[in-house]
Design a binder for these strands. Structure first.
Lengths: 344, 344
DNA sequence: TTCGTTACCGGGAACGATTGCGTAAAAAAA
DNA sequence: TTTTTTTACGCAATCGTTCCCGGTAACGAA
């Protein structure tokens, strides 16, 4: 079914004018007489004319759209970021195209390629947890394509980046557990090579050191898909509890890891925090309604989206190639609730 | 910062060919000699040529993209629907552009207009709760623009629609409350004129009648934004509890309404289900982790997205105008948990 | 030698909109 | 009246790609 749209030619033909005159009349050019303008405007209104953005994009080599790649929009952290992105983008007259990688490298590649092939003016991306090969992004970046990384960033590509202080988040969470009397603190993290994993575990390790607790590698488990699939978390926790030295607390370094931990404990009748304390990175807005209510490290996701978008729009609208890139770091917040209540 | 992309002209110039020849070589036309093809293909590969989808869209009058308008991607119901939509769309080679109305009519209008102005081939939409004026959609539909409604539909526009059996959902939930011994069952619903409100309350009312309980209008409250803002729910519940006839159970007809009810009760120390039972429409995947775990009517959201997308692609790819439209109805599931446990 | 094929390739219009430039006619200045 | 200026519009190029027409070699057949 073809949807035939009204074009400037239809107006021109109907009114016996040239397309240039119609175009200028619509843009209120001084070169067009008031009578002609009125006639064009009225007829355009009557037949509900809308300029074709595709044609404009082709001519102007810009689309006034920006692309987003996130792991999962179902993840509160990302949906809050997207809301932050939209709040800035729409103000500046940009549209936003959202895509999901579902933590898959292949899907990320497809999305980036689709977005980059000139359907958008710039890209905001948080890497999929599977992604190790960055050539698709390097290629774009080398050719001057505006890219801003947020959340999951990479060192190899020099551009604007926005993150939270993940090390501090991991440190604060671990410190809180230690000070609450927990001794054997396990950590559950996303894929090992991700920036957020490195930093959050770095904070975890630093807190242990500062409190003279020996770092025990066997207490740290990784989930390649960030807990997106429950099995992954189940396996990690199974192996954690099979060890002779059982943890009495766990620090989960991502949203899905945290909730899937709770699910695992509930399924097995392991009581939180009596049997094990739980704290995790999470931005879900139901934490206080959970049983037990959940202690979390919360990231300023909305703000993160705003900052990233501002940086991206700067890149896009800059006249000259930008060589001076910055990495903005926001501060996470620690919320103490029942799931880590002090050990008796 | 301008990002200069490689075009077919660059290849033509470098190789001393015409653009037509290069174009044909790239599309493997029989009219081009094997040597020329090889040369073009290799050079295109070398400089990483990608066809410009904007130019193609302009020429072919199609974009192979479909647009989505939902209230909130942060809402699990909608994010599950989106995943269903993507699963079908990507298989068929379509890209998906997601937009949010945030329950605002104005935002919906902007999004629909942006999407419809030929950036997409068809539209999947669940109306914003504020939306009463449908002229923006009627206009498009009359001109043959492919539209499929899901979740929140309208009678006035005759096209494909996908819903769940909302009346049954409301009926089952209410029946369950009645059979558990609750007498004064309140209902909290979305904006009054929405199809989902009408149907779900219809089920509620039918269940009351079938059990010889008189329908009491004062026990039914509406929230214009579907509980998106907490205040709205707070006001509704305040007025509900100020009445002399206090409810002993509540049926919340939407996701955010349900969780905000729990939040309200928790804040005021009202115990669920001892003081009041709660059941609601919800697709959040944390219901069993809540305190108390939540009884819900769950919709097959993923499937809904799939069905809607299949219908839309049928419309888009149909050669002749489609006049025969259908409304597909899926079945909701009732999950009984602690929040409605039998009254003593 | 000449005609007909076949194999290859180029020119140019088209998609919808903008815009620099050219130019009639009308108005103003000389 | 003549010249200049202003007004108000049209022509055509442009963006990147496809595709309908052609066109021109080379080669075999008559």
């Amino acid at each position: 079914m073809k949807y035939e749209a009204v074009t400037i030619k239809d107006i021109a033909k109907e009114l016996g004018l040239s397309t240039s005159t119609v175009s200028r009349a619509l843009r209120d050019s001084y070169e067009i007489s008031p009578e002609t303008k009125k006639m064009v405007l009225e007829y355009a209104e009557k037949i509900n004319y809308r300029p074709n953005p595709i044609a404009l994009s082709l001519k102007e080599k810009r689309t006034r759209s920006i692309g987003i790649v996130v792991a999962e929009i179902a993840n509160s952290f990302f949906s809050q970021i997207i809301n932050g992105i939209e709040s800035i983008a729409y103000d500046k007259g940009y549209n936003v195209i959202i895509t999901q990688s579902h933590e898959s490298f292949e899907r990320e590649l497809i999305n980036v390629q689709y977005l980059a092939s000139r359907s958008i003016d710039g890209l905001l991306i948080s890497l999929a947890s599977e992604t190790r090969d960055l050539s698709h992004l390097k290629h774009l970046h080398e050719r001057g394509y505006p890219i801003v990384f947020f959340d999951r960033i990479v060192d190899e590509i020099d551009t604007h980046k926005v993150i939270v202080d993940n090390k501090k988040g991991g440190y604060d969470a671990t410190k809180h557990l230690i000070e609450s009397g927990y001794k054997h603190i396990a950590a559950l993290a996303n894929a090992e090579y991700l920036s957020i994993t490195r930093d959050r575990l770095g904070g975890y390790q630093a807190a242990l050191e500062d409190h003279k607790i020996k770092y025990d590698e066997s207490l740290v488990k990784f989930c390649l898909h960030g807990g997106l699939v429950y099995d992954e978390v189940e396996q990690a926790l199974d192996s954690l509890f099979k060890q002779k030295k059982k943890p009495d607390a766990i620090f989960a370094a991502a949203d899905k890891l945290t909730t899937n931990c709770l699910r695992y404990f509930k399924a097995r009748g392991i009581r939180v925090p009596q049997d094990i304390a739980v704290i995790g990175f999470s931005n879900i807005d139901l934490t206080e309604l959970l049983s037990p209510s959940l202690s979390v490290v919360r990231q300023p996701a909305f703000e993160m989206g705003q900052v990233a978008t501002e940086l991206l729009l700067n890149l896009i609208e800059s006249k000259r190639p930008v060589k001076d890139f910055e990495t903005k770091m926001l501060q996470p917040d620690l919320f103490i609730r029942e799931s880590t209540s002090r050990k008796k």
